[in-house]
C-alpha cells in the first residue's frame, strides 16, 4: 500500500505532475500580470502622440516616435547630472544609513544593555511624534545650514526608527545569545563581536534593510522639493517630478494664461509621462537581482525546512 502511494507520487517531496503544471501556469500568469503594465508603459513611451490620441494605447507602437524622450531629455546635461546626484546619494546614503541603523539596533537587541529602555523609547518616540514641517525645515536650513548641498539629500533619511525596530528584532531572532557569549569567553571585545560574529550572521537582515534604504533614497523627490534651490543638486526623481507636474498643469485647462498655450505647442503629453516613468525606474531595477539572493534567504531563514 505504502509503496504504491510512493510510486504514484514519484520521489519523496516532489510535487505531482499536474501540481507542477498548475504552479507553473500560475506563476506565468503572475509574471505576465506584473510585466504587462511595464511593457505597455515602455511601448507608449515610444509611440507618437498622434497615434495615441487616435488609436489609444497598444502593446506594439503603431507609430514609432522618440519625441517623448526628446522632450524629457531636452534638459540635456541636467539629466545626467541628476542621475549622478541620485546614484551618489543612493550609494552613500544607503551605506551611511545602514551603518547607523544597525549600530543603533544592535545594543537594543542585547538584554545586558542597561539603558536599552531609554534608547528604545528615544527611537520609538520619533515614530509617533514629529516636530512639524516648519521646524523640521528650520533645523536643516538654520541650524545645520546644509540646504543646497548634497548632504541635505542624505541626512534627513539617515535614521529610521522603523528600520531600527526591524533590525533589532532580526538580531534577536537570528543571532543566539549563546554565540555572543561564546565570543566573549574567547576574549572578543564588543566591537569585535559585533563586526566578526553578529554582522555576518545578519547578512539577510542587512540586505533587506539595505534595499529599503536604497529605495527610500532613490525614490525621493521630497527633499529636493523642500530644500534645494540650486539645480546642480536636483536628483533625477525631482527633475522628472517637475516635468510631470508641468505637463499636468499645462494640460489641465486651469492654465488660465494663454501664453501657456505656446509652451503646449507640440508637447508630447501622454508618451512623455511614460518616458518619465521609464527613465526614473532607471538603474534601480538593477539593484533587485543583487539583493534577491539575500532576500530569499531572509524570507526562508525562519521557515521550517522540509
Amino acid at each position: 500500500m505504502m509503496s504504491k502511494i510512493l510510486k504514484k507520487q514519484g520521489k519523496l517531496n516532489q510535487i505531482s505532475a499536474t501540481g507542477n503544471i498548475l504552479l507553473n501556469v500560475l506563476f506565468i500568469v503572475i509574471t505576465i500580470v506584473c510585466m504587462a503594465p511595464v511593457l505597455l508603459v515602455l511601448s507608449i513611451s515610444f509611440s507618437s502622440e498622434e497615434a495615441i490620441r487616435h488609436g489609444g494605447y497598444s502593446f506594439i507602437p503603431q507609430e514609432l516616435s522618440l519625441k517623448a524622450y526628446d522632450y524629457v531629455l531636452k534638459a540635456g546635461d541636467a539629466i545626467w547630472r541628476a542621475y549622478g546626484v541620485s546614484i551618489f546619494v543612493t550609494v552613500v546614503g544607503t551605506f551611511l544609513s545602514l551603518a547607523i541603523i544597525c549600530m543603533y539596533a544592535y545594543p537594543l537587541s542585547r538584554s545586558s544593555f542597561k539603558a536599552k529602555g531609554f534608547f528604545s523609547f528615544l527611537a520609538y518616540f520619533t515614530m509617533i511624534f514629529g516636530g512639524g514641517l516648519v521646524p523640521w525645515i528650520m533645523v536643516y536650513t538654520r541650524l545645520f545650514k546644509i540646504s543646497n548641498s548634497i548632504w541635505i539629500l542624505i541626512f534627513p533619511y539617515l535614521m529610521n526608527a522603523w528600520f531600527v525596530m526591524i533590525m533589532r528584532t532580526f538580531y534577536k531572532t537570528s543571532v543566539p545569545e549563546s554565540i555572543i557569549e561564546s565570543a566573549r569567553i574567547d576574549g572578543a571585545g564588543e566591537f569585535r563581536t559585533f563586526l566578526v560574529i553578529v554582522l555576518p550572521l545578519s547578512k539577510a537582515g542587512l540586505a533587506t534593510i539595505g534595499l529599503f534604504c536604497t529605495l527610500v533614497y532613490w525614490n525621493d523627490w521630497y527633499l529636493p522639493l523642500m530644500f534645494v534651490t540650486e539645480r546642480k543638486f536636483f536628483n533625477i526623481q525631482y527633475l522628472m517630478y517637475q516635468t510631470l507636474v508641468s505637463i499636468q498643469y499645462l494640460t489641465s485647462g486651469s492654465a488660465q494664461f494663454s501664453e501657456a498655450a505656446v509652451v503646449l505647442a507640440n508637447l508630447p503629453t501622454e508618451s512623455a509621462r511614460m518616458a518619465i516613468a521609464i527613465i526614473s525606474i532607471g538603474p534601480i531595477v538593477l539593484a533587485y537581482p543583487f539583493f534577491r539572493k539575500y532576500f530569499v534567504k531572509g524570507l526562508t531563514i525562519g521557515a521550517v525546512k522540509g
Binding site: V245, Q248, Y249, A255
Partner: peptide
C-alpha cells in the same frame, strides 16, 4: 533667479 515649475511644484 530660478523657476520651480508651475503651481503644483
Amino acid at each position: 533667479a530660478e523657476n520651480f515649475g508651475w503651481g503644483d511644484t
